[in-house]
Each structure stands twice: as C-alpha cells, then as structure tokens.
C-alpha cells in the first residue's frame, strides 16, 4: 500500500518544553497505524498538529504527496482528516443525527430560505450508522442514552460524513468496559474494511496488537521505533515502550 500521510520532522515547543522533537512517520493507505508511548511522549501534541488544533514550529504534514498546513480544525477536516477524541467527540444531549452532522448540516431551500433538512439528515445518518452498528436505528435518540461504544460509533459516523479518508482515533477505548471495547475494535476493523486509513492512539497494548498493522512508539517527542504489528504481543510492546529499545527493528 502506498503512503497516505506522513509527518516530516515535526517540532513543537510549549515555552521551554519540547513536546515534539522531529517526528517523522509514514502511514500507509488502508492500514491501521497505532501510535504508542508513555504519558508525555508527545502523542497528544502530534494529534493536535494533525487535527489543526496546534500549528507545528517546524516540519510539515504530507497527504498524498502534497504538503499541507492546517491553521484550523476545519482545514484539517477538509483535507480528509477526521479526529475523534474520546471525551470531546459528542454533544451528549443532542441527537445522534445532530451529532453526526454537526458543523456540516444538510439544508434545503424553502422559498429561498435555507432550512435544515432534518429528514435527509436522519436518513443519511441511519445509512452511515448501519455500516458500523446495525442495532441503532432511531437517529433521534440523544447520545447520552447510548453506551460508550455506541457513542464512539456516532463519532466515527461523523468522520464518515466528512468523507474523511484518514480517521484519527484518540484513546477510543479508554474508560470503556470489556464488551464496549470489543465493539469499538470492531468499528476500527469496519473502517479499515471500507478502505479508510486509521491512526489509533491508545494506551492499551492489547487493543493495539489486536487491530494495528503498524506501530510507532514515541519517546521524548521523537518516534523512536516503527515496526510491523504482526506477531507482536502486548507484553513485547509494553517492553519496547518502557525500554525504548527493540532487538530487531523492522521496516
């Protein structure tokens, strides 16, 4: 698979703190690429740069061979990059369809006035949802009434709605139970199956080895290790993250 998105030598400082010190990662199209690392390794800063929330001090993001520069979240979205945050993804007291279409609502013209096309949004939302979770059919339900796994499905539907080719999942299974975690991992597999490129940020080694094709390990603001995930065990991965060393680096 060709490289879909790369970060090239990205630096980001917060005052005296060097959060990122030259991160260069190639992510291949249609793969699930996990980014791991201990707290403070630079994972969240890297996500912010990709999502257009923070601008890098140096370096660039390249998508399909073209350099991009995101100054706002919208620009990142328009470049086909959707970021889904564990806590920040959904407005709990709004309905499923309102969440899915948040910021990109469909409208229709009624006597020259642009009105929300709620019917179409509900229909389309149901379409997106059926790709991920067939059990949810009523798009008017408020997100607060859904389980954690179902909420992630709603957030991912929003990414689909944006026609995002690249979906960044930021700690999608944190604070979820065993069954819900399994649901989310299933969502990741569905995304991959539909040809999306997935960037997965996770603390859970088990989740990473279960779904990832490749893994990059960040340490002190640098990607120290990049490796294929096949045959990788969770214990092994933990060891790499803690030690920052690997016996045999694979391409």
């Amino acid at each position: 698979m060709p490289v879909k998105i790369s970060t090239r030598n990205i630096y980001k400082n917060y005052g005296a703190v060097e959060a990122l010190r030259g991160v260069s990662i190639d992510i291949h199209e249609g793969e699930v690429h996990a980014i791991c690392g201990d707290n403070g390794a630079g994972k969240s800063t890297l996500i912010k740069v990709l999502a257009g929330v923070e601008m890098p001090d140096r370096g660039e993001v390249v998508i399909d061979g073209a350099p991009c520069r995101f100054t706002t979240p919208t620009e990142s979205l328009k470049a086909g990059l959707a970021t889904i945050h564990q806590d920040l993804a959904v407005a709990a007291r709004m309905s499923i369809y309102e969440n899915i279409f948040m910021g990109a609502e469909l409208t229709k013209n009624v006597l020259g006035i642009r009105m929300l096309d709620k019917k179409k949004m509900r229909q389309d939302a149901a379409g997106y949802m059926s790709q991920l979770n067939k059990s949810i059919t009523d798009m008017n339900i408020k997100v607060e009434e859904l389980s954690g796994g179902q909420r992630q499905a709603v957030a991912i539907c929003r990414a689909l709605r944006w026609n995002a080719n690249i979906v960044i999942l930021d700690e999608p299974t944190a604070a979820l139970g065993v069954r819900e975690t399994e649901q989310v991992l299933e969502l990741v597999r569905s995304l991959k199956q539909s040809g999306k490129t997935v960037i997965l940020i996770s603390h859970s080694m088990k989740d990473v080895v279960a779904v990832a094709d490749r893994v990059s390990i960040l340490r002190n603001g640098q990607n120290q290790i990049d490796l294929l995930a096949a045959d990788l065990s969770a214990d092994r991965l933990s060891h790499y993250i803690l030690s920052g060393e690997v016996e045999q680096v694979q391409a």
Partner: peptide, 23 residues
Amino acid sequence: QTKTGIHLQATGENEEAARRSGI
C-alpha cells in the same frame, strides 16, 4: 430550523466538539 440555530446549540452543549467539527 437553521444551521445558525443548531450551531448555537452545539456550541452551548459541547464547545470543544463544536469547534472541532468546524463550527
């Protein structure tokens, strides 16, 4: 019934989510 209205609501309900959705 308008985008403006629902953006107002999204902003109030979850500002960060709204902002990151391009609102």
